[in-house]
């Protein structure tokens, strides 16, 4: 694999990671800590939304993020023909 392709691949990887980490930060620190009081004004069932994110929701989103990353990286690696 040549140098340009390697750099382009790495750039795509980094930009994907940054996008997903923004979501990671938003659901955990954002919804579960910083804006927890504001979100607690919204309720569904017995849950206050901020509390739900801190104790349930963030974990579900983390799961989705890892599998999205793994899936997208597979596609990127196929594109650059560096898959295993």
């Amino acid at each position: 694999m040549n140098k340009e392709a390697a750099e382009a691949y790495w750039k795509e990887n980094i930009s994907l990671i940054l996008k997903l980490l923004v979501v990671w930060f938003a659901v955990s620190y954002g919804c579960g800590i910083i804006f927890i009081d504001e979100l607690n004004a919204i309720t569904f069932g017995g849950f206050k939304l901020g509390f739900w994110f801190a104790q349930q929701g963030a974990i579900y989103v983390f799961l989705v993020l890892i599998f999205v990353y793994a899936k997208k990286m597979e596609a990127i690696e196929e594109k650059y023909d560096i898959h295993e």
């Binding site: 990671i17 997903l20 980490l21 990671w24 955990s28 579960g32 800590i33 927890i36 509390f51 801190a54 104790q55 963030a58 974990i59 983390f62 993020l65 890892i66 990353y69 793994a70």
Partner: peptide, 26 residues
């Protein structure tokens, strides 16, 4: 701990799971 701390117990729940996102990507 969560039972005792209530809402703030979320720090442990998110902290001990959120690290896996970093592990998988970084």
């Amino acid at each position: 701990i969560v039972s005792l701390k209530g809402s703030d117990g979320g720090a442990y729940l998110m902290g001990w799971t959120g690290g896996y996102v970093l592990l998988a990507m970084l």
